[in-house]
Structure formats: structure tokens, C-alpha cells
Amino acid sequence: MALMPKRVKWRKSQRGKVRGVAGKGNTVAFGDFGLQCLSAGWLTARQIEAGRVAATHYLHREGKVYVRMFPHKPVSSKPLETRMGKGKGEPEFWVACVRPGTMLFEVAGVDETVARDALTRVAHKMPYRCRFVKRRHGL
């Protein structure tokens, strides 16, 4: 099942704009290799789940996959053939806002070639340009 919050304060939110670059969550923090987003926008819960499934299936239960973002934002829409007005539509799906630099997924416990192949498959499921990065051990 796709990710979504367990508890929220408000059911609906305004759309907003994804501006700027990732000031945090932009380094490989848990695994050895990561997939970094190079664009700004929304990632739906389904896309995140598709990426997670692609990585875990490829790794055959070897290593560990970390999902570094979470869909906190509800997106509402109006039913088909409905006239405008009469209030905001109902929440349809959940999205995560990502900025250039956001680390989307991380992989640990496998060597670089396997991690690169796994994260390439994940990158194909993502709607934005991504790149493969390694953990920085030194300064």
C-alpha cells in the first residue's frame, strides 16, 4: 500500500510551490550509495512505492533499501463532470515535495555495481532526472 501519514492536522492543503534547493536531506546518511534528485517537484506515493519495489526486487533481499522522503502533502481533485465551485475537492493522493539535491533512496550492504544497477532501475521509475552518488567518508 502506498505511503501516507497516519495522523494529520488538516485534511487538505494548498498546492504551494517547490522553490529553492535542498538545504538538508541532501547527503548519503544511512547507506553507502544513494539516488539524488536533480529537479524540483512532487513525487507521488505511488512513484515512491514503485521505486522501493524496483530496488528491493532487484536486490533479492540482499542489502537494505532506505526511502529518504515521505509523502506528507495531500492533493485534492474534483470529480469528473462537476461544475466549478462548491468547495475544494476531496484528497485523492499524497505527494512528497523534492528539491534539487534531495536524497530519494539509499542502499546499504551491497557492492557498488549492484547498488548502481538497483538505483538505475529506481531512477527509471522517477519522474525527474536523478543521479547515483556515494557516501563521503572524508571531509
Partner: peptide
């Protein structure tokens, strides 16, 4: 979209029930 229509629990002060608002409209 049965899977996505499941809603999370609401926390905090709820001003007015959404069902009532919908009924009024």
C-alpha cells in the same frame, strides 16, 4: 482508488465536521 481514498486520522482542534459542511453545501 480505494487504496488512496483511505484517510489519515485528524488531530488537533476540528472547527467543523466536513460532513456537515458538505451537507450544507
Amino acid at each position: 482508488e480505494a487504496a488512496t481514498t483511505a484517510e489519515p486520522e485528524r488531530i488537533g482542534r476540528i472547527r467543523k465536521d466536513d460532513e456537515e459542511v458538505a451537507a450544507e453545501t
